[in-house]
Design a protein around this nucleic acid. Structure first.
Lengths: 101, 101
DNA sequence: ACGAACCGAAAGCTACGACTTACCAAGGAC
DNA sequence: GTCCTTGGTAAGTCGTAGCTTTCGGTTCGT
C-alpha cells in the first residue's frame, strides 16, 4: 500500500465505478461485472489493483469471492485531501491579508 | 468540471506532485517545473488538465502565470470520499449485526 | 524598438495500461 | 465421482496518455 497507488487506482473510470458499487454493498465479482460494460476478467484485474492499493478487501464464500470497500484505505485518501485543503486555505488567508492595504 | 475528471487528474504522479506543491504555496509554471523531473511544457499540459478539472486556478502576473490550488475542487473530492466511507461503514455495521447470532 | 523572459500550442514518438479470448483451478450440488 | 458455477491467470492486441522538441505569442525592461 504505497499510499499513492490508491490515487492511481481511483484514476481509472472502471475502478472508480467498482469502488462506488462496493460502497453501496459488498458484492461478488460476477455481480460487479454484470453491472459494468466490461468483461468479468477485466473486473478481476481491476479488483487486484484495488486490493493491492488497500481500497478493498475480499473473502471467500464457496466458489464466490465477496469484495467489500476498505474504510481504512478510503479514510487515508480523505485525510490527504484534508491536508491539501487546509494548506490551500491558509495560503488564501495569507494572500488576502497581503492584499488588504 | 465533470466532477470525475478530478479523479483522473489526480491519478497521474506528475499531477499529484504538482497539486502537492501548490498546496504549500501558489507557484508559477517555471517554479513548478524546476522542482519536477519533467520539462516545462509538460508541466503546462498537466496544469491545463488540472485547471479543466477544477483543481487549480491561475492568474496572470506580468509574463508569469501564478497557479494555486482551488479549495472548492479539493473539497468536492473529499466529500465524495466521505460518502464512500460512510456507506462502507454502514455496510460493516449491517454485516456484523447479521453475524451476531 | 529591440531583446529577454516566460508561457502555451502543435507535432510526433514511445510506452504502458485497459481490454478480450482462452485456459485452468477450486468448490458445491446431486 | 461428475458436472456446473465461479474466478483468477496468461497471452496478445490496440488505443491513448505523457513526454520531448520546436515554434509562436505576450509582456516587461532599457
Amino acid at each position: 500500500m504505497a499510499t499513492y497507488q490508491a490515487w492511481e487506482a481511483l484514476g481509472d473510470p472502471s475502478r472508480f465505478a467498482i469502488v462506488a458499487a462496493l460502497a453501496e454493498r459488498p458484492q461478488a465479482v460476477g455481480e460487479l461485472a454484470a453491472t459494468l460494460p466490461i468483461s468479468r476478467p477485466a473486473v478481476s484485474q481491476h479488483l487486484k489493483v484495488l486490493k493491492s492499493a488497500g481500497l478493498v478487501t475480499d473473502r471467500a464464500d464457496g466458489t464466490r469471492r465477496i469484495y467489500r470497500l476498505n474504510p481504512t484505505g478510503v479514510a487515508a485518501l480523505r485525510d490527504q485531501l484534508d491536508t491539501f485543503w487546509a494548506r490551500a486555505l491558509s495560503s488564501y488567508q495569507e494572500i488576502t491579508e497581503e492584499e488588504k492595504p
